[in-house]
């Protein structure tokens, strides 16, 4: 790790001004992605602005049928929240399947979506549930927030403050984990809106990060059963291929995980 200066921000505005004064600063969430990258000397921010002690950015509250989750809320807190389990069981189970206990106790939802790893779990939930990302500057629909592999609509100095999830009639997530890292090799989030519309979002498999499966959505709107998606797979040409799985294998996993998510929902 290169030398860096740590700052603890007490409020969103303080975090923004600390960042404005930094040479080449970075916000620090749970550090589960940023710190390993720094330890491997692949990133060398001059300053770290810790946003996890900001009271406004923590905690989970009801929001109509849905929930609002502060950006500094840990995966563990989301996975064990009664509110989330009751309203969006798919989201709670997703958070409970991220990494391992150590990661879940440190990593935050804000850090995860700001990082937008193509194999991260949360992006699938945000897109399928039609969540809104609240930042220090604006509110963004999830589909506008995630712009590509490791890319988001965030400005350098913009902070994710919270994520607002609308309610859903049913939600479920099925993930095939990479055996080594336990990130998703294919993760499919299925959400059924109160109006009967269905959204299916896939993470882990796409070359540009999270994407929706409209063929599956149409099929499920007519017949919400695993069989409805059994014959539908994404085009392998658009999928990731690496030492852990070829694009063709990932295409199969998307179908299998979609079936399992529908089964669970």
């Amino acid at each position: 790790m290169y030398e860096t200066t740590y700052h603890k921000a007490g409020s969103v505005s303080e975090a923004a001004s600390l960042m404005a004064n930094a040479d080449d600063g970075k916000f620090l969430g749970g550090g589960q992605t940023l710190l390993p990258t720094m330890k491997q000397r692949l990133a060398a921010p001059s300053d770290l602005v810790d946003v996890t002690k900001i009271a406004d950015m923590k905690g989970i509250s009801a929001n109509g049928d849905g929930v609002t989750i502060g950006a500094a809320t840990t995966h563990f807190e989301v996975s064990t929240s009664d509110l989330v389990k009751q309203k969006l069981p798919g989201l709670a189970s997703l958070a409970g399947g991220i990494g391992d206990p150590a990661v879940r106790h440190m990593g935050t939802i804000g850090g995860s979506i700001a990082n937008n790893d193509p194999a991260a779990d949360y992006p699938a939930a945000l897109v399928a549930l039609g969540a809104t990302v609240v930042t220090s500057k604006r509110e963004l629909a999830a589909e506008d927030f995630f712009t590509g592999m490791f890319e988001t609509a965030l400005d350098e100095d913009e902070i994710v403050v919270a994520v607002k999830f609308p309610g859903a009639a049913a939600s479920a997530y099925a993930k095939y984990p990479n055996p080594a890292s336990r990130y998703a090799m294919a993760g499919v989030f299925v959400a059924k809106g109160s109006d009967g519309s269905v959204k299916v979002a896939v993470t882990g498999a796409g070359q540009n990060g999270v994407f929706r499966m409209s063929d599956m959505e149409t099929a499920l709107a007519g017949n919400f059963s695993p069989d409805a998606v059994a014959g539908i797979a994404p085009d392998a040409n658009d999928l990731l291929s690496d030492i852990h799985g070829s694009a063709a294998y990932r295409a199969n996993l998307v179908t299998v995980m979609a079936k399992r998510a529908v089964q669970k929902a």
């Binding site: 491997q40 055996p179 080594a180 890292s181 990130y183 030492i243 852990h244």
Partner: peptide
């Protein structure tokens, strides 16, 4: 699970626990 995997240029692709599965 385990495999030391190199690319054709001799870079070890499984050089951390994110890719080398214990």
């Amino acid at each position: 699970l385990e495999n030391a995997s190199y690319d054709e240029n001799g870079q070890l692709l499984t050089a951390s626990y994110m890719d080398y599965c214990m």
